[in-house]
Structures are given as C-alpha cells and as structure tokens.
Design a protein around this nucleic acid. Sequence first.
DNA 1: CTGCATAATAAAAACGTTTATATTTTTTCT
DNA 2: AGAAAAAATATAAACGTTTTTATTATGCAG
Lengths: 358, 358
Amino acid sequence: MGKATRRVEMPTIKTLAEMTGFSIATVSKALRHSPVVARETRDQIFKAAEEVGYTANTRGQALRTGKTYQIAVLMPLTSASGYEWDGVEYTQILSGISQGLDGSGYRISAHIVTDAEDGAEMARQIAGLGLADGLIFSGILADDPRITLLAETAFPFVTLGRCRRDIDYAHVDVDNEWAAHAATARLIAGGHRRIALVNPSRRFSYSLDRIDGFSRAFREAGLEASLDLVVEGDLSTRFGKESAEQLLSLANPPSAFVCVNESTTLGVLAGLSALKLAAGRDVDVIAYDDINVSAYFTPPLTTLYLPIEQLGRRLGQFILRRIAGEGPGALKETFQPAIVPRQPDQCRMTPNPMTGGE
Amino acid sequence: MGKATRRVEMPTIKTLAEMTGFSIATVSKALRHSPVVARETRDQIFKAAEEVGYTANTRGQALRTGKTYQIAVLMPLTSASGYEWDGVEYTQILSGISQGLDGSGYRISAHIVTDAEDGAEMARQIAGLGLADGLIFSGILADDPRITLLAETAFPFVTLGRCRRDIDYAHVDVDNEWAAHAATARLIAGGHRRIALVNPSRRFSYSLDRIDGFSRAFREAGLEASLDLVVEGDLSTRFGKESAEQLLSLANPPSAFVCVNESTTLGVLAGLSALKLAAGRDVDVIAYDDINVSAYFTPPLTTLYLPIEQLGRRLGQFILRRIAGEGPGALKETFQPAIVPRQPDQCRMTPNPMTGGE
DNA sequence: CTGCATAATAAAAACGTTTATATTTTTTCT
DNA sequence: AGAAAAAATATAAACGTTTTTATTATGCAG
C-alpha cells in the first residue's frame, strides 16, 4: 500500500500449519526431521514448504535457539595510510573459510580490528554478547590475550597461528620454524654466511618461530647465526625497501635475504634495484609466498609456498566441529610449506673473513 | 550446573524493569530515548543499565524489528586455482566500508561469490530472506542482473561501479573513461602510436568504459585507435604475462601498455623480462594502482591511483543513508583517479610506418 | 471390553524486544 | 473543586521459532 512494492508476505511456519492442517509444533518438528512425527505428515509438510518456497526465518530461530549461524572473523589491519597491501592475503583466507563452511548454513561476519587491544575487545564482545557462534582470528601474539580470554569460556574459536603459552585450543598453523630453517639452510648450503631475516615484530608468535628456525639452521651448520641481520617491522613494502637499503649499507652486509611475505619481498627487490643490485645476481632472496605471485617477480624467486586458502578451509571445518561440541584436542593442524626453488641461491660473494665458515 | 562454565545470565530489559520498578515497555522506550518517558525515569533506567552492563540482545531486536544490523558484502572470487592475487583489493574495500559504518552499530557480513550468476542468486536470497539490511557489491556487468533485480524491490543497496542501463540506484565509481583517456593521451603525447590495453572481459561495465576512454584519446589526437591491441581476460598475473608475450610477438607490436590492475601489471612486467625487455627502457607501462604498490615495481611505474579505501568508506556511508530511507538520487559519486607520473613515458621506438601519425 | 502402553499430534510457553492500546497520574483551565 | 487535557506509565500483543508438556488416537495384553 504505502511503501512502494511492499515485499510479499513471507511464508512462515504458521502458513504451513494452515495449509496442511497440522499444528505449528508438528510443522516445526517435521521440518527438523524429528523422528516423532509420522513419515506421511512430514512428507506432506515438506511438499507444502516447497510449494510456497518456505525458508526458516533466521531471526526467529536465532532468538529461540540463541544461535546466530554466524562465524565472526577478525581481520587485522594496521590502517597505516599508504600501506595498502596490508592484509591482502585475507581475501584468500576468507575464501577458504567460506569453502570450509559451505553447506553448513553458517555465514561469515568480518570485523576489522586495528591492533591487538582492539582485537581483544572485539573478541570479548563477540563471545559475551553472542554476536556469533564461533570466532576465527589470526595475527597471534606470543602471549595472546584473546586466547587466554576465550579459553576460559566455552566459546568456540579457532586461531590461525599458535601462541607460546601452554593452552589447549583449536588452531591451524604453518610450520614457521621449519620454513625458516629450510630457507636458511638452503642459503647456507649455497655458501651464504651473512643472511638477513626480514621479520615482523617479535610480539608475534610466528616471528619468534622464524627466528628459531633461522638460528637452528646456523647451529646445525656449526656457524654463528647472523642475528644482527634480523630486522623487524610492519610488513609493508616500504619497510622491505628501507630494510634492504639499511642492511646493505652495513659494513658487513648480508649476501642473502629471507623475507617474511610478498609485500616486504617486493620492497626488498625495490631496495636492491635502487642500489643497482639485483636478486639472483648480487644477492639471493627467498620469500614466503602468500598469494602465489613470487613466480612473477623479476627474477622469479625461490619461495616457501603457503597454501593459504587451504588453511582457511581447515579453519572453517574446525570451527564447525568446535561449535558442534567437539573439544580442541584433535583440532590442531600444522601445515608444512612447500619450498619452490626458482634460483640456484648460490653465494657469489667471497665469504666475509670476519664471519665466514671456519 | 551441567555445562562447564555456564555463561552468566545476561541482563535483559526485564532485569532493568525489576531493578527500577518500571515496566519493560517504559524501559524499552527509555533506552531508545523516546520523548514520552520522563527525563528522571530515563536517567534512573540508564543508571541501572550501566550498573549491570546491559546491552540489548540483537536477536530479540532483530526478530521484533525485522532488522539484522548487518550489511552484506558480495566478494567476487574466481577461485581459479593458483590465481591467488584475485581480489586482493577487497581487504581494503572491507576496511573502508567498516570505517564508513563505524559508530552505526552495523556489522559486515561477507559472502564469497564465484560468478555473476552465483552473485545474483546470493543477492536475491539476501534481499528476499532479509539476511541483511543492505547490500554492497562490485564487479558490475554492463547489464547487471543484480541491479535490475534489486532496483525493482525496495531493498537498499549500493554498488561499486555502474552498469550501462538507465536505472536509478546508489553507487560509487571510479571515472574509468577519464582514467583510460588520461593514460592513453599521455602515451600518445609521448609519441606512442601502438598502445595495448590489458583489460577485463567486456561483460564488465568498466571494461567498456576503459575502451571508450582509450578510443577517445586516439580520436582527439586525430589517430586511429589501436583496438587490435585490446586484450581481455581474467585479471590474473598469468594473464598479464601471457598477454605481454603474445602482443609483443605480433608483427606490429605495441610500444606501450595500459594495464588494468596491479596483478596484471606484474604479469606484464614478467612477460617483458622474459623477452629481455624492460619497462621504461624498451616499452612504457602505465598501470591502475589498487593497492599502492606500483611505486615499488622495478622500475617504478606511472600509475592511475585509485583511492580504494576511500571508495569503500563512501560505500559504507551511502548504504547507511539508503537504509535510513534516503533515495538513491544524491547517493552517487564518481572518483577521479590521480595520475602519478613516475616515468617520462616517451616512445623510444621509431613510429611504425603503417600506423605512425601522418 | 477394560486398562495401559505407545504413537502421533496439539497446546502453550518461552526467547527479548518493540509498539499499539489502555490505564493511571498530573496539570491546566473554568 | 471538578472536568478536561496532557503526560507518564502499564498492559498486552506481536515478531517466528523451538521445546516442554498435555492431549488424543491407536494397538495390544489380559
């Protein structure tokens, strides 16, 4: 009447009750395949439902059951202006989660958080107010307040990454220690002795994991790790560029880089180029590869490929199982990255007398 | 009792009613700042609310009002395997939308869609079942079924991009015709005559816009547009590389490229590199810059910078106004990209006798 | 047949709001 | 002071489900 094109009245459970002559209770039970209702009546009700195109009203269900049929995902964005590569991998993560949730009726609600405190507050709110039935988040700190917070409640959550505290919770992770070790060992085998590690802040758990792997590779080779060449910062392209420039201007510069993600890698390459150096010729670079694009860098780089979408898929599957009541025990998985060699990664500089292998 | 750590009973409107001695109706009205309730009672009720940390139950509100306090965002992902740059700009878009929604109480629900049909079905569902109060989507086709569908209903939506049909709807867009014209004109002024346009499929509205601008630049210079050098495909890095290789092997190859986004640009650069050519030396490349990273390409490229996060912010603001009842009339904005010169973009090849300016 | 399980369905309450209508209290005016 | 008007609050219904409890119908043993 008043409003233009008033949406046609949606059929409810009551509609079906009137159509079939059964009570709304029976209709509800039938729709949920309850065994107490006779097969024949159930069929009848389903027929009616199909006829009028009935779909359960999520709001009614939500109120009654307390469920939202939503999975909240916290997307960490620094929102540093001009740093717009930030979080690019999140599209793939969301896509993966979405696949993992497929067919379950659960939807994704995305929440942008700008830092750990913000994230903790958001987690508290989501769990406390029941804004979602489950929570997924990443960017895990060595001592992550969100994990300690949520682990105390019964609220289902799964993390992408592990914290360093001994807490029992569902998670999916990449074996960062292994990956950093593999990259570093490969470079050491190629004759490199001064290797830079372009890393995120040590607050992040995976930052520490990478330093561990990095150190182990040196230790296993009987060498002293070039820990003075470990730099940490945001993962922006700018940071990569500045790091490369700064490190290469040192008295005892690196002959190779291990880069934490593609954004910084691109920055490092830009830094090399600004110094008239080239990866694969003057310096070797091995990169973590979130979004499968390093193959197109000039030159193509050796990478540690992280199947990010697959991780996302697992996150989705795990959160569903948590919501279904399963404990965190079996819901832990660590993916081994694949090393994709695209360069010989042989050191072309004479080993520095100060640090070279003895 | 049974369940471990049974979450403490949340205070409801009823709790407040009992605490203050008023009826739940009065409490409800007070909380919503209704003018009918006396100032003094309102203060009393707010004090009680604060005391017990009351927050309105979204599910109750949702059922009663029919509102979900959610904005659905359709994220188009081709999910072509190995093409993981796809949709990288979406993180920024979501971030922008989130900012535009800030303080409104609205949250974002993200829906991954794989193609236009999927997207149309999802739009129909969201609007039909009232899964959200508003809808935002992009990847607009010249004749987009979602727009025609939704424009018929009263369901609030805002698009990122415009379709080519004469429909009145809220949208935010980039002036693609202008941008393609600017890039092409700059290259023509630099002496280029054979210019390639690496473009998405012509199904997309903005693809056509870019061809229009591209053509206009030639027309205004009194030249024939090199329309044979317009290639279309998905916007993957691979597509960029293959396009560059294929175009440069033509008998009458381009001396410059206009690239549709950074993913393809990187591919084009990789293609050039594979042919032992370099941008800025043998060939000029101007790129659209979604995620502000072209500055770090080697060499830095001249780009058309799209303030994508800003677009997102506007999308958020517009959808709120649509939901508040405002018509689409004033909710239309077209952003002018900024051209960021980082190369001279001068043609270094002798003009081809077949097509050179006469 | 009566009584009693068992199966099938119905009735009613509840989830937490909002809102239309009804009631009470206060104010204003004659 | 008393009636009418205005202000403040209360009652009750509704949104669409699910679930507990109650009712009716059916089958079967004694």
